[in-house]
């Protein structure tokens, strides 16, 4: 059941994204930025966590989850360390994902040749 919910929810988000790409002049980069902003707004309103609880990877694999993680980091940081925590919390919470992206990206760039 968890698998089905993840598949369906993730699929629906992507389907909506496809409508936006086909019907507007927005590029893929625009779409990713919009989703991240949307994710952090939903997170601040307390709406994103229930989605993750309900749909699992369906909500946490899309890039909007990146906005959610950053926002949760900011909120938790504020509670623990005030304004210092606001500055530190977001990136701290997303550090593993960002680090992995940069490290894997770097080595893939070194190892592989583009095929075109």
């Amino acid at each position: 059941m968890n698998y089905l919910l993840a598949f369906l929810f993730g699929g629906v988000i992507c389907a909506i994204g496809q409508v936006i790409l086909d019907k507007s002049k927005l590029t893929q980069a625009d779409l990713m930025v919009i989703l991240v902003i949307f994710g952090s707004l939903a997170s601040a309103l307390g709406l994103y966590k229930p989605l993750v609880d309900m749909f699992g990877a369906g909500a946490s694999a899309p890039v909007s989850n990146f906005g959610h993680v950053l926002t949760q980091g900011v909120i938790e940081g504020y509670q623990e360390n005030g304004f210092f925590g606001v500055l530190q919390g977001g990136m701290a919470k997303a550090a593993a994902v960002l680090g992995a992206s940069i490290i894997f990206g770097f080595f893939a760039g070194l190892l592989f040749r583009p095929k075109g």
Partner: peptide, 16 residues
């Protein structure tokens, strides 16, 4: 839309 749904859903399924 159908193709985006299937591919996006499948990636989430792998994640799950």
């Amino acid at each position: 839309i159908l193709r985006a749904f299937l591919v996006g859903g499948s990636i989430c399924l792998v994640g799950e």
